[in-house]
Design a protein around this nucleic acid. Structure first.
Lengths: 228, 228
DNA sequence: CGTTTCGTTGATGAGGTTCAAGACCAGTGG
DNA sequence: CCACTGGTCTTGAACCTCATCAACGAAACG
């Protein structure tokens, strides 16, 4: 069901332009970048690439979600990162090795933009603003990944969940409500938890005023949640 | 005991030149880079910067080791990364925010090279090879950090230790011996473990043919260790 | 040769995983 | 309209790994 060279929907185009990757590009660079790019729509649980394969492209999520994960010897999967619309992945292979280091798979139907590594590498050497875009993208990615390590090592399951809710909360205090943009099992993987552990974390947070119904999370007092 | 503008020892200079950061630079860029750099020797457990401070520089370790860590609400520390000679840290702030996001402290007496963010930012915009050096450095750093997340989420303590030993083992099979370049407590933090857990992991690995005496680790059969 | 730091060991408990069973929900087809 | 079905989520129970605390032994260092 691979659908290459798809025409960009206007919503996808808007997401693409807000990416750290393309938002800073001037006219000429932008055109060249878009020219080497191909857009693909993929069904749920479709593999994009596998660990160990020769790397020839990196990707940007336009719609839906993509899981990056690894397997251990016994075949258990662990998510390394969940990529949301606007996120770039495998761009570190521009200057860091020539094989994919993890599996990438859609978590639901998704649209991704594909960039040839070799082409972008050459363009980054020619155009300064493209190099800058790459650096910005890498920097952000690195910061969030280090944040992830710190989160894993420092916080318990309820604290990680509270953390996640707070990052999605528009308000600073009082009551709030958010809607999960994906299944809970995906959130669990994102936080480095088994789905059961996420479920238990939610029920622990009930006494802090968090109620969950389906994908809707209601927070009684955002400030109280910050104390967890 | 801050010792700015120290003269580079020849060993430090050799480390510096092998850095992904400087190894690819041509004459002119290299000279400019070295000109804006200042080298500092620091005693054990000296803070280099603290979380939340305004960021004005990033660093490269020339000698010794530097811990990057964070504190949780109760004051417990968790290491995010241990930087060895040749490693760069906080370089993600070139294009990713203007405050340090974690604490940095020497783990033993160390020598570091300091680069002004603003100066390097300007140079990266002018010179393509400097931009490329930044991208290479960021890419490597990102790959190892993602590796770290996967390691934490996928492997048990003995597996992480086996992993670490294998990455330092020169040979592919048969017996081998390595010498830890630092204290065990530092290795523990690096692997996301308490020192006691590292100690127990070593004793678990005894039945796989690993013996530890002081900083020397003897491996009976490297291949057997790979099976863990 | 004491003092201090580092490493090991044991006991205990908290936090998560795993497995199994059941609840809930939406979609499907009788 | 209702029963069946397949997926997702929750709950319970047993187990496991690791952190923590405390005590002790071993180096390192003056």
């Amino acid at each position: 069901m691979m659908n290459s060279n798809l025409k960009l929907s206007s919503r996808d185009r808007a997401v693409l332009m807000k990416t750290p990757f393309l938002s800073g590009l001037s006219g000429n660079s932008l055109v060249r970048m878009l020219a080497t790019m191909s857009v693909t729509s993929l069904p749920t649980r479709k593999s994009i690439f596998r660990e160990g394969e020769d790397a020839d492209a990196f990707y940007c999520v336009l719609n839906g979600y993509v899981r990056l994960y690894r397997l251990n010897r016994e075949g258990r999967e662990a998510d390394i990162r969940i990529c949301a619309p606007g996120d770039t992945f495998a761009e570190c292979l521009l200057y860091g090795g020539n094989k994919y280091r993890y599996h990438a798979q859609t978590a639901e139907t998704a649209t991704v933009a594909r960039f040839e590594l070799q082409a972008v590498r050459e363009m980054a050497e020619q155009e300064k603003d493209i190099a800058k875009a790459v650096m910005t993208s890498l920097s952000r990615h690195l910061l969030t990944t280090m944040e992830c390590v710190a989160n894993d090592r420092l916080h318990t399951a309820p604290q990680r969940v509270a953390n996640y809710i707070l990052t999605r909360c528009p308000v600073d205090g009082g009551p709030a409500a958010i809607r999960l943009p994906f299944q809970k099992s995906l959130l669990a993987g994102m936080l480095g938890l088994a789905p059961e552990a996420l479920s238990r974390a939610f029920s622990t947070l009930r006494k802090t005023g968090v109620t969950v119904r389906g994908r809707v999370i209601q927070v009684g007092d955002v400030q109280a949640l910050r104390e967890v």
